[in-house]
Structures are given as structure tokens and as C-alpha cells.
Computed example of a mutant assay.
Amino acid sequence: MKANEIKKGAAIEVDGQTILVKQLQVQSPSSRSGSTLYKVRGQNVVSRQKFERSFKGDEAVNSVDLIRRPVQLLYKDGDGVTFMDSESYEQYILSEDSIEEELKYIAEGLEGMLALITDEVILGIELPTTVVLEITECAPGMKGASASARTKPATLSTGLVVQVPEYLEVGEVIKVNTDSADYISRA
């Protein structure tokens, strides 16, 4: 596969290491003769070390076959975070460090999560595009607040902080984009 075909959530092999792609940034050339660069940020699935490298669009990259299985959160404890396969009831344990970013969006009963598995080993969790979370802390809502672009920070039930319109209040349930951590709408 070529570097311009890499997608977020894919697994690639670089220098004998399997890398789970967590972010992808496309940098257009600044001159006519330049080539588009694909900046890949991810994590080594064995050592859990962060990985970052830029590839030219036509550069060859080895892809790793991933199996995606529907899972749900069972519990968190000292060993890590335990997920259960929604169909086979098999359990997978991941360390909190390895899914630190994803945990900000995972609340009890979240539907639509997928476990990324290769060679019987769980690599990570793929979140749905949007999640619904409750506001647990924010400044009081303003009665005369217009629907203008004025926002305030709000802490959600998972600890994630997002900017929300100033008319929202504690206890309201909102929809959040998991790629950008942006407020979308009331749920």
C-alpha cells in the first residue's frame, strides 16, 4: 500500500515494528516540485512507545491486517481496562496508558466501540465518530445568551473538557466529536 492510502485506525509495519495509526496529517507541498507529505502519529503496539514519521505520498508502506470486533467496557481496575466482545463474550484487557486518549470519551454503556485485533492480540480501541456525555461542571448558563459563537469550558462525566455554548448548564447531555473533541449539539 502507498502512504497516501494510510487511514486513522490502520496498522502499518515500519522497520519491523507494528504501528497503530492514531493521527494523520497531510502537508501539501510549498513548491511545484515538492511532494505531499503524510505525517503519521501512532503507537508501537508492543512497546507502547509513541511513533511519529512523515512519508511521501507514493512511498510504499506495509499494512498489517486488523480484525475489528464490537466491544463494550466492562470495568477499570488496577490491571487496566477490561472490554468484552459483544458477540463472543471474550474479554480483552488494555493498560490505561495505551488508551489514555480514548478513555476521555468512554462512558458506561457506550455503544459502537471496536477492538482492533491482530494475531489474537488487542492493539487498541476505535471509538464511534460521536459520543454522548453529560456536563458535570461549568459556569452557570446565561439567560440572555444568544446563539452567538461565545463559548465556555465544560467538564464532562469522563473528565474531558470541551468548549460549549454559554447557554448550556450542568446536567445537560451533549454530543461530542471523538476526532476533534468539539461540541456538536445537545443529545
Results as ranks from 00 to 15, higher is better:
1 M>G: 10
120 E>H: 09
132 V>K: 07
20 L>Y: 10
98 S>R: 13
93 I>N: 14
129 T>M: 13
156 L>T: 13
157 S>L: 10
175 K>N: 04
9 G>I: 09
47 S>Q: 02
166 E>R: 11
140 P>H: 06
41 R>H: 04
158 T>H: 01
154 A>N: 04
78 G>M: 15
37 L>D: 10
185 S>K: 13
147 A>D: 11
43 Q>F: 02
9 G>S: 01
162 V>C: 08
153 P>G: 04
159 G>N: 04
7 K>Q: 14
62 N>L: 09
69 R>I: 14
15 D>C: 01
54 S>Q: 10
169 E>W: 05
145 A>N: 09
71 V>L: 05
165 P>S: 05
38 Y>S: 01
149 A>T: 11
163 Q>G: 05
80 G>S: 13
92 Y>D: 08
152 K>E: 10
171 G>S: 09
144 G>N: 14
83 F>R: 09
175 K>A: 11
122 I>Q: 05
72 Q>K: 11
135 I>N: 02
23 Q>G: 05
65 D>I: 04
105 Y>R: 03
26 V>T: 15
181 A>M: 05
38 Y>T: 08
21 V>S: 11
78 G>E: 15
176 V>S: 04
55 F>M: 01
156 L>P: 02
116 L>W: 04
91 Q>C: 10
143 K>I: 14
81 V>P: 08
170 V>I: 15
17 Q>H: 15
186 R>Y: 07
85 D>E: 15
69 R>G: 00
6 I>Q: 06
150 R>Q: 12
14 V>P: 01
82 T>N: 08
178 T>F: 11
2 K>T: 14
9 G>K: 06
1 M>A: 08
144 G>L: 13
103 L>C: 07
91 Q>P: 01
82 T>A: 10
183 Y>G: 08
107 A>W: 02
33 S>N: 11
145 A>M: 12
12 I>T: 12
162 V>H: 05
108 E>W: 01
39 K>C: 05
63 S>W: 05
88 S>A: 13
124 G>E: 02
167 Y>V: 04
72 Q>S: 15
73 L>D: 02
101 E>V: 08
120 E>Q: 14
42 G>V: 07
57 G>Y: 03
50 K>H: 01
121 V>D: 08
134 E>K: 15
54 S>I: 00
96 E>C: 08
47 S>N: 10
89 Y>G: 01
167 Y>N: 11
53 R>L: 03
53 R>S: 04
42 G>F: 00
24 L>G: 03
99 I>V: 13
128 P>N: 03
61 V>I: 12
160 L>I: 11
131 V>D: 06
41 R>V: 09
22 K>R: 15
117 I>D: 00
143 K>A: 13
125 I>C: 06
25 Q>P: 00
3 A>I: 12
87 E>Q: 13
92 Y>T: 03
40 V>D: 03
147 A>N: 11
178 T>H: 06
128 P>D: 07
145 A>W: 08
137 E>F: 12
37 L>G: 05
38 Y>E: 03
37 L>K: 12
14 V>S: 03
31 S>W: 08
111 E>W: 01
75 Y>I: 08
147 A>K: 09
117 I>R: 01
62 N>A: 13
92 Y>I: 12
56 K>V: 06
58 D>A: 09
112 G>A: 06
89 Y>P: 00
175 K>I: 02
64 V>Y: 03
113 M>Q: 08
181 A>K: 07
68 R>E: 15
168 L>N: 03
4 N>R: 14
24 L>E: 06
149 A>H: 09
144 G>Y: 12
85 D>K: 14
